[in-house]
Nucleic acid binder design. Structure first.
Lengths: 128, 128
DNA sequence: CAGTATCCATTTGGATACTG
DNA sequence: CAGTATCCAAATGGATACTG
């Protein structure tokens, strides 16, 4: 085992337990939900408005998975109407920081990506 | 607009162009492929063995998308049998570093996640 | 070797209706 | 308000077979 293997020991193994967790936090809606929750505590519908485009179903599902894995804290007041608040756990905060870092980076480099795409598409169109 | 909004300006908007890019690099197989390519240049089947569990179809699809977006460089030698080598572009390296950071973190905290799951499941089983 | 093509199972996602 | 339940369409993903 060389030094690089030691950095990321076994995600590359099919049955590594961390793979599903990675998919949970890096999922399409999970990334955005976690990043949004860095801004503070959100109620369900407020978060749904913040994460534009997510359906009730997917947000509920995403939040449940993140809660179960310990990234998100859910606090429900047994009132009528119900009031449920979502926030990051300490683990979730650390994770969300890394995701926000990734998001920032991708946004900053978006022009590069768009340029690469155009070059790729034009090269393909040329010898087609 | 407050300071937090400025950190991640508009990924939260449904039609933000960076969302698809984020999904491309954070996809189930893209994360692993990019992390694997930090170790060096890989031929298609070598990479497929490294990213255990990925199908030919998904690896090909993932690599094409990453190449088009400018994260991966593809170098094909027109020999028989064909020899194709994949490596990270500078943009891909920066991205892969951030992803590897996330992977390491998730692996390190895996015990916490498993503990959280158990607590969550037991709490639900209790009042069921 | 490096893919592409095809078929099929699973998952995802949206719309709608309903409940405490 | 904060969900759950249901139904359905569409996208995703995997196994296999085939090609230059």
């Amino acid at each position: 085992m060389d030094e690089l293997d030691q950095l990321v020991p076994d995600v590359f193994a099919r049955d590594c337990a961390s793979r599903p967790v990675l998919e949970h936090v890096a999922g399409r809606w999970a990334i955005l939900a976690l990043a949004a929750l860095r801004e503070g505590t959100f109620r369900f519908n407020a978060l749904r408005r913040r994460v534009d485009g997510v359906s009730e179903k997917m947000l509920a599902q995403t939040l449940q998975t993140l809660e179960r894995d310990g990234f998100v804290h859910r606090r429900a007041e047994p009132t009528i109407p119900p009031k449920v608040e979502y926030s990051l756990t300490p683990l979730g905060e650390e994770t969300a920081d890394k995701l926000a870092d990734l998001i920032e980076f991708v946004e900053a480099r978006l022009p590069d990506v768009l340029a690469a795409r155009q070059a790729y598409d034009e090269a393909r169109a040329a010898h087609a």
